[in-house]
Amino acid sequence: MLSIKNLCVRVDGSDILKDFTLEIGSGEVHAIMGPNGAGKSTLAKALSGHPDYEVVSGEVILDGQDLLALDAAERAQLGLFMSFQYPVEIPGVNNASFLRMAYNAKRKAAGQAEVDPMEFEFILQEKLELLKIDESFLERAVNHGFSGGEKKRNEILQMAILDPKLAILDETDSGLDIDSLRIVAEAVNALRDVQNSFLLITHYQRLLNYIKPDFVHVMVDGRIVQTGTAELALVLEEKGYDGF
């Protein structure tokens, strides 16, 4: 489903990803763990097409499409979603209309008719219930004045609405208290199915107590140095990254 081959990415003149290679199959959940500065967030930004992240070489194929040939919006329309480590506040833009805009952008790109606010209301209600999110979320400006936990939940709500093929969760657990973490994890679990793949990026094992990955990768200095199952995370938790 997603195939990354020998990806090299440069940021501000320094090489961060070095021959990074990873395959993710449909319905799989992969976790990437690693110390600070390993290039985990760079991977997320480069995959989603952030213009400051320069792809020097390599290949990324999502569902048969050359991802690197597309701009950020086109990648999103294709079904790539990234939950931001630091979701951006957009004052003055209503959360519900933002969600509908994103939803319609994807439909439009797929040649489907856009949905009107009434129709969209039904779609929203269903997801709100699934994620146990209060309706008041919708009336607020996008992430504006949200607490850290609310912002992350808003990311998950967006993910649920957009139903991506591949969701990258960039340090979704950071800054979350244990209750928020559980809520977010339950939501992710509720959205898991045979179609959707997830790439979890995290420092700590604790998120993986709630979301059980199929594979755990250890990333150090811009590449994957070891791959294992969920048990690898427990080993890492105990021994740290010093051994790599």
């Binding site: 213009p51 919006a73 999103a76 931001f84 951006v88 957009i90 967006q158």
Partner: peptide, 10 residues
């Protein structure tokens, strides 16, 4: 970029 990542053009 946040808009773009949600599929919304500049």
């Amino acid at each position: 970029f946040y808009f773009a990542q949600r599929g919304i053009g500049m």
